[in-house]
Design a protein around this nucleic acid. Structure first.
Lengths: 157, 157
DNA sequence: TTGTGTGCAAAAGCTTTGCATGTTG
DNA sequence: CAACATGCAAAGCTTTTGCACACAA
């Protein structure tokens, strides 16, 4: 649960530019809270939920509320800077997505560990199914569930 | 939200046998509530959540509680008679799975409509990734999200 | 008869909403 | 200065838990 304070400054600046642009185009206010949340997210690695992010900001003495966290997460999803996931539990998890290539997830049902992988065949499936079923497909989630054979410390989360 | 009272009697009897066998092997009690819930599920088509199922049973004058519904759903997932889904909202959805071939879902982000499709390439991806990442993969979810082009009555659910 | 399963209601966990206040444009 | 965003707390929803009673084995 420790977040590693590794901020890729360059990536963050680009993300910030995208966010700024998004807010300007939509007549949204560029508040310090919104930028602070973006920055915290871009410091984090892996996956997080709204509560974890909120607590993390609180312990860093930011003055933010849950409402603002939820509100901002929604904006960031809307401009594709973060991605929303449901890994089988009723908690929405997020991960930053700008500058990272599209990938899918493999989740250990024992310890909750999440691995990532890419497979180009999914793109083919999306294209084919979109055409067959007359859908304009915008995104997808492929989650594989199983048990990791090696380093599984069971029932972690 | 109407459930269509079409009970495939044969399929239901087989499912019941599987459930009975599961309960016997695990020293669980074969209560009338558990069978009633299984029957209601096998009457339903499409996807449902715990609350919908609970309400539906209440209106049919069954005397069941939410606790029992949730408990039984868990058992049915454990013996593979139903499948659990998270289609992006924080509600767990289920569908009966015995007698139905494995399939994935295409969800309309406007109206909530869910279509099903099959693609054998997913099996290949599962096999390959399981091997590469040293996981014993038990199941998966592939959800494609998009907008249906034709008969979309927008914002239904 | 014994202990698991049940119903009911309260509690818990995540997310949304209402309202007064603060702050951006 | 006007509207939008924020903080806070309360409310909403889904799911889980505690407890006394019921009933399957």
């Amino acid at each position: 649960m420790e977040s590693q304070e590794v901020l890729n400054e360059e990536l963050f600046q680009e993300a910030k530019a995208i966010f700024t642009n998004y807010m300007e185009s939509n007549n949204l206010r560029k508040t310090p809270e919104r930028f602070a949340i973006l920055e915290e997210i871009y410091k984090r690695t892996d996956h997080f939920d709204a509560e974890v992010l909120f607590i993390h900001m609180k312990t860093q003495n930011y003055r933010v509320s849950r409402a603002t966290v939820y509100n901002t997460l929604e904006l960031l999803v809307a401009c594709d800077l973060i991605t929303k996931h449901q890994f089988g539990k009723n908690v929405t998890q997020y991960e930053k997505s700008y500058g990272y290539k599209q990938h899918d997830h493999l989740i250990c049902v024992d310890c909750g560990k999440v691995l990532e992988f890419c497979d180009p065949r999914i793109q083919n499936i999306k294209n084919m199914m979109g055409e067959m079923l007359d859908f304009k497909i915008t995104h997808h989630n492929l989650n594989l569930y199983g048990k990791c054979q090696g380093s599984c410390d069971k029932k972690k989360s």
